[in-house]
Amino acid sequence: MQKVKIILNKKEAPGIFLMGLDVGKEYTKKCSPGQFVRLKAWDSFDPLVPRPFTIHAVKDERLYILYQVRGKGTRFLCRMEPGEEVEISPPMGNAFPQLKDYVLCAGGVGSAGFGFLLQEAERGSYPLPKKFYYAARTGELLARAQFFQNFSVPLALITEDGSLGKKGLITDVLKEELKEERPGAILACGPLPMLKAVAKLGEELGIKVHVVLETFLACGEGFCMGCVIPLKNGKYAYLCKTGPTFPAEEIDFERL
């Protein structure tokens, strides 16, 4: 873990913050979309382990994360001020797969990692997705919608209450739109029920789905063997070693 300076910690939506860190160019050069970092903003042992966050965006020597306040660790994080320091791990986990003819699906802060993906796609180091479906309960929870709008990829906003964009669940919209024109693949990140629903839809429509999963990570480095994801073949995968992105068809969602 190395100490880095906070350059920004700003509320983007109710309970959702954007944190910018000055990690240095050497660090950002090593980062790939889909990878995560572990952060520690406290000196005590409670919370104990650094918390994992997907790399949301990278600019020069700066790295950004987009996070939702959930418990002890994220409450610590959201109280930090620019100029203060946090400890950061090296980038961890695997990059998003390089997909062809694909769309992005995000629920809530599941959108975080797609910022970096879109940045790299515009730079040409990732294929450009055809469309980005971004859903949340309400319009104000669609954090960073403005930022995502800056890319050339069409952005479809979806809210459960209809306060912004299309009204409904992300799968309702996908069902309608993907019937017309089927993409080759879907890359989805968000709450587990959403991922399950998207995986099921992909199966029905014959579209390959890749899901970004979450578990509690004690080490993020393959040391503890705690982060198991049950597979349909009866074996286990370790989220931090082979994930966090997995082909949905391999996951045994029932045992997860």
């Binding site: 005590s44 042992f45 409670d46 919370p47 104990l48 382990v49 578990t215 509690f216 004690a218 503890c224 063997m225 705690g226 982060c227 198991v228 994801i229 049950p230 074996k235 286990y236 045992r255 997860l256």
Partner: peptide, 17 residues
């Protein structure tokens, strides 16, 4: 092959695995 998830969780100042 080891146990089913969840395998590990945090407790105050500790882990349970």
């Amino acid at each position: 092959i080891g146990n089913l998830p969840p395998r590990i969780w945090e407790t105050p100042c500790g882990l349970i695995n």
